[in-house]
Structures are given as structure tokens and as C-alpha cells.
């Protein structure tokens, strides 16, 4: 099953390339809440069939961007378009599915009752059995929402996003607070959607999640898009390297070497984060003949992300 899904994803990536038509966009969109600038002049497009991850720390503006796309917030300046229309209108919303962060859902309704109600809002809903199967809810369809576990609750909200058979889905931090197992289950369900030709925007602050799911990652921080590309490109663009070594040089000296981003004491040695490893290694070897246990690894998406947002934070 997983193999099949991955194959389809691969095909889709090759097929779509740059060619998918734009189906949703923010154009120079800003959003202010009072004095707080949640989004600043953001340009953001979503193309048919792709899975875009909007990645950023808490408070970066991810949810605000989703709200603009859903017509739940109006941009202070700039425009938003979904399927060439304004998402405040019901005819546009019939083609959108949304999974939002919600603190409390009516707890005394059963799973299938929630789905039945939401299905009635859409002109061509999926059959309820199909929704239950897609979201993995068949066995708990008669349970009241209040009796469900965290993972099951997220899957119900996911099912509500699905039930109108939308062309585009906006998933706002779909796996937040879930354990590893539940997260993987939901990932699988999201992959299956994309394999069915749906377009998905998901926000996350789990870097692993963006890496595992997305065709394209858009990194956002403090209301601005600071990087964009495939997960591999994001990693490459920062070219992060991590060097571990045991050295007699003191930490301040190492920190002063050109190209060093961060130095931490790591057990017996130092852990150095830098743009590229070679110049630093050269310096280290010249300055400390007794240096040992050198280990160079490429930084993960996590380091790339920290580097991106960290650099940005220093700049402002």
C-alpha cells in the first residue's frame, strides 16, 4: 500500500513539474491585528495537485495565512483568490476542505452524526462510508466525540475537511499534539488524498513532517516568507554542516572562526554548526595539532530551519 502511494507521488512530481495551474494565491497580502503584523506582503501560490507545507515556528503567521485562504480573515492589504473567486462565498467554499485548530468540538454528537451534518453543507459530498474509511473511523463511527482519543479526534476533524469531496484542503497543524503512531497514520491518509489528485496546503512546525510529506516547503517567520523550495533545496540552500570534535581550543576562539554559525559544548568536545565544513576544518587542524574525533554530518531540515529563522531573527 505504502509503496503504491509513493509511486503515485513520484509520478505526480514528475508530471506536475512546474506546470500545475495556480488554484489559490495570496498576492502581496498583509494582515494586521491591531498593532501586530501577522503577515507582511506575502506572495504565495498553490498549484493544482501539489502538497505544500507552510513551515514556521509558533506565531509565524501560518494560521493567519490559512485563515486568509479560507475567507475567515480579510487581508488588510493585498488580495486572496481561490479558484478565481473570493473564499468568503459559499460557492468557493464548496470546493474547499478545512481542518482548523479547535479547542472544543461538541462532545455529545457521534462521529457519523458530525459527518452527516457537514456533508449536508456540500452539493456533492462523498458517501459517508467512504469518508469513514478514508479517515480510518469505521470502527468508532458510533462513538460520541467526547469519548475519543486525541488521535481519533484529529481524524474526525480531518474527515470533516474531506466530506465535501473538495479539490483543495487546508490543514492547519493537523498532527499537533499527536503521538508518533497517530501522526504516521494521519500522514498516510494525507498522502492518499494527494494520490487521489487533491491539492493540499498543510501548516506545521514539525520539520520532519514537511520533509516527509511535502513537494514544496515554504518557510515563514514573523509574517514573512524567508525560503521556498523542495525539502532538498531548503536543506541545500543553507548547506548546513555539523562538526563534532575534541579540541583544546577554547570555545570563544572557535566561535570567532569565519563561517561559524553556532558552537556548543558537547560532552568532551565541541559541536560546531557552519555553512560549509572545509574552511573550518582547515583552520581547526592548523590551530590545534592535537584535535581528535572529528565527525562531520550534514545538518537536517531542522538545522536548516533554525539557521533560516535564526539568521532572520538576528537581522531584525
Amino acid at each position: 500500500m505504502i509503496a503504491v502511494v509513493e509511486e503515485t507521488q513520484e509520478l505526480r512530481k514528475q508530471g506536475s513539474g512546474n506546470g500545475g495551474a495556480v488554484i489559490a494565491s495570496l498576492r502581496r497580502a498583509s494582515k494586521n491585528y491591531g498593532a501586530v503584523q501577522a503577515l507582511r506582503q506575502v506572495d504565495f501560490t498553490i498549484r493544482a495537485g501539489e502538497l505544500v507545507a507552510l513551515l514556521g515556528p509558533n506565531g509565524a503567521g501560518k494560521t493567519t495565512a490559512v485563515k486568509l485562504f479560507l475567507g475567515l480573515a480579510k487581508p488588510t492589504t493585498g488580495t486572496v483568490g481561490v479558484f478565481g473567486g473570493n473564499p468568503i462565498y459559499a460557492e468557493v467554499r464548496t470546493r474547499i476542505g478545512a481542518m482548523l485548530q479547535v479547542a472544543k468540538v461538541p462532545e455529545t454528537l457521534r462521529v457519523r452524526e458530525h459527518i452527516d451534518l457537514f456533508s449536508s453543507y456540500y452539493p456533492r459530498p462523498l458517501p459517508i462510508d467512504e469518508i469513514l474509511t478514508l479517515a480510518g473511523l469505521q470502527e468508532i463511527k458510533d462513538r460520541e466525540f467526547g469519548e475519543l482519543s486525541g488521535g481519533q479526534r484529529q481524524r474526525v476533524l480531518f474527515a470533516l475537511a474531506l466530506c465535501g469531496d473538495p479539490d483543495i484542503l487546508f490543514l492547519d497543524e493537523p498532527t499537533v499534539g499527536l503521538d508518533v503512531e497517530s501522526r504516521r497514520v494521519l500522514w498516510e491518509e494525507i498522502r492518499r488524498l494527494v494520490a487521489r489528485g487533491k491539492t493540499v496546503l498543510l501548516t506545521t512546525h514539525y520539520l520532519e513532517e514537511a520533509d516527509a510529506l511535502a513537494d514544496r516547503v515554504v518557510v515563514i517567520n514573523r509574517g514573512e516568507i524567508i525560503a521556498e523550495g523542495t525539502p532538498a533545496e531548503i536543506k541545500a540552500s543553507t548547506a548546513g554542516r555539523r562538526i563534532r570534535c575534541v579540541t583544546s581550543l577554547d570555545i570563544e576562539t572557535v566561535r570567532g572562526l569565519p563561517g561559524v554559525i553556532e558552537v556548543r559544548r558537547d560532552r568532551a568536545g565541541l559541536e560546531i554548526r557552519a555553512g560549509s565544513a572545509e574552511p573550518i576544518l582547515r583552520e581547526l587542524l592548523i590551530r590545534d595539532a592535537g584535535i581528535s574525533n572529528i565527525e562531520v554530518t550534514s545538518a537536517g531540515l531542522e538545522e536548516a530551519f533554525l539557521a533560516l529563522t535564526g539568521t532572520n531573527n538576528d537581522a531584525t
Partner: peptide, 18 residues
């Protein structure tokens, strides 16, 4: 008050519910 304050109304508002 509860549905408005705890986000449920927003989920419904994002749908095409009248």
C-alpha cells in the same frame, strides 16, 4: 459562547454552511 470562543464556530464558518 462556547462554540464561538473555542473555535468550533470558525470550523463551521469555513464550510459553506449558511
Amino acid at each position: 459562547a462556547a462554540e464561538r470562543g473555542l473555535g468550533w464556530l470558525q470550523v463551521k464558518r469555513a464550510s459553506p454552511m449558511p
